[in-house]
Computed example of a mutant assay.
Amino acid sequence: MNGNADFQYLQKRILELEEKIEQLRLSRRVLMNLIEKIEKDKSGFVSRLEKENRKLHKDNYRYAQNMLKQNRRIVELQTKLESMLSE
């Protein structure tokens, strides 16, 4: 009789462990899906940041070129003014 009780206990324990394994598999799938989503979101975010960075560099370059052009114009006007005043 003791052997039968041990057998039933072991069968019950096996079923419990199989259920836990299935729960772990499900949890793993959920976690992997979450990791994939996070990686995808991260990739999109990095892509947007890189795009914004390129835009800012481009805008900064244009701004610097405009400032340089204005500075040249100021120097030209100062030179003209000085030449007019010295005549």
Rank of each mutant, 00 (worst) to 15 (best):
Y63E: 09
I74Y: 02
K69G: 06
N66Q: 13
Y63F: 15
I14P: 06
N60K: 09
E87Q: 10
N71P: 01
I14M: 04
G44L: 15
K80T: 11
K20M: 12
E52K: 00
R62Q: 01
K40E: 12
E36G: 04
M84I: 06
I74C: 03
N2I: 07
E87T: 02
E82F: 04
L24N: 06
R48A: 01
I74G: 02
R54I: 15
E76A: 09
M67E: 15
N33T: 13
E39M: 08
I35F: 02
K55Q: 11
V75A: 12
E18P: 02
Y61K: 12
A5Y: 02
L15W: 04
N53M: 09
Q11W: 04
K42A: 14
Q65Y: 01
E82R: 10
L24D: 05
V46C: 13
E18F: 01
L49D: 06
E50L: 14
E52C: 09
V75W: 09
L49R: 00
K69A: 11
R72P: 14
N53D: 15
M84P: 00
R29M: 03
Q70D: 06
N60I: 08
L15Q: 15
K69N: 04
N33C: 15
D6K: 04
S47A: 12
E76T: 11
M84C: 03
D6Q: 08
Q11V: 10
E18M: 02
Q65D: 00
E18L: 03
S27E: 13
M32K: 00
K58E: 11
R54Q: 13
M1P: 14
L49W: 12
G3N: 10
G44M: 13
I38Y: 00
E16F: 10
L31P: 00
E16R: 15
T79S: 13
A64P: 03
L31T: 15
L77A: 11
Q78E: 03
Q8H: 08
L68K: 08
Q70M: 07
A5L: 07
I74N: 05
L68V: 08
